[in-house]
Write a protein that binds this DNA or RNA. Structure first.
Lengths: 208, 208
DNA sequence: CGTTTGTTTAATAGACTTATTAAACCGTAT
DNA sequence: ATACGGTTTAATAAGTCTATTAAACAAACG
């Protein structure tokens, strides 16, 4: 029986090498031979630990995925804030999460359509959110609207632009980087600017 | 010598089948065998007309690409409008272009990194815009700001959110569709709503 | 009717992919 | 030392992929 411990250095090394390659090139464009080469081991070893390439991919996908959404909904600390600070906190947290995992959205977009099993995973993860956060945030929003500090707008019409702006930045960044011939410093500057620009744009848009 | 006429029905059929598959699954995940099967012809015929798979892909990529950016910068009719109408026209035109070509952004994001030749193509296409439109639009913006109708904001900080919201909608739509189990009607409703919601969100955000 | 020209197909070479198998290896415990 | 466990490798099966080649086919022309 396979141990679940992962204390094996090679199994971990395979996971890490495969993660990098899958994130970078996608499932189809990555071969077990390439993974083995990156690890510095024999190709058969990949199959010894994970049996199939699909297995290996799913392991990584689920793990990255659970981590990503766990972080996404990990929004303690915003509870006692005022509305504007709460929005600011949520959006910048989302931004930072993307900054630290810039390739995950594209991985999901790329691979989800051919993997119905993992659609269920995403659906389940997404069901954890709505009641707790969404309802509370919506109460706050309605109060702000009633108080005349925010124009009448639905919560979803705030969230979609916020998520879109954050995700689009990191999904499109590789293209922008190449086309604009940006160096690392320019890229960092752009990201740093967008971190606040995105949330400011949202806040300006919803004020009454 | 190969004719450039494309009056060959099979050559056109190959282009159309390949376009669908490349857009749907990407370059790596599409085989010439699959293309031939979709066309209903022998696999060698693909190579008879295009010699290599890479050739075929590049032909399609460049064609789609030129069309996309030509449309993108085809913004006559906005000249004589007031500022708000001009912004509205530009953003909804962009939205409609994406609506009619929803897979092009993802194709570019997916394939551009491995194709430096086509980075040059994109760079060239992008250089056609800036002087004409950007400068004129920026003059309008500065006038609006001076007149106190728009808050102080740079043009790029308006364009990035606008493009991001529009692109993100169509790039993320396949995922949203699957996860939310939306039918065709719900999808249409969402798109119809976002068409105006996106531009309204921008206009609200920039007003003084 | 036969030839020519462009189109299409069958066959296949050669490279690469995933996955399996048996053998080699290596540290540990008897 | 030796036998045993898990680990790693070499070898290879079986399949797919791109691309080429030679032959079959069909329509137009002499």
């Amino acid at each position: 029986m396979k141990e679940e411990k992962l204390n094996q250095p090679t199994e971990q090394a395979i996971l890490e090498a495969a993660e990098k390659l899958f994130l970078e090139k996608g499932f189809e464009a990555t071969s077990t031979t390439q993974i083995a080469k990156k690890v510095g081991c024999n190709q058969a070893l990949i199959h010894y630990y994970f049996r199939t390439k699909d297995n290996l991919f799913n392991t990584i996908f689920e793990q990255k995925f659970r981590y990503f959404f766990q972080q996404l909904f990990n929004i303690e600390g915003a509870k006692s804030m005022g509305f504007e600070d709460k929005i600011r906190h949520l959006i910048t947290s989302h931004f930072s999460l993307l900054e630290n995992n810039p390739q995950i959205p594209l991985l999901i977009i790329r691979e989800l359509s051919r993997r119905p099993e993992q659609v269920a995973l995403l659906r389940e993860k997404l069901r954890e959110l709505p009641e707790q956060l969404f309802a509370a945030l919506n109460d706050d929003l309605q109060a702000e609207i009633k108080a005349g500090r925010v124009r009448p707008v639905s919560l979803i019409d705030i969230m979609i632009p916020a998520i879109s702006m954050n995700v689009a930045l990191f999904v499109m960044m590789p293209v922008v980087e190449q086309v604009m011939q940006m160096d690392e410093g320019q890229k960092k500057n752009l990201i740093e600017h967008r971190r606040n620009a995105n949330v400011d744009f949202i806040l300006h848009s919803i004020r009454a």
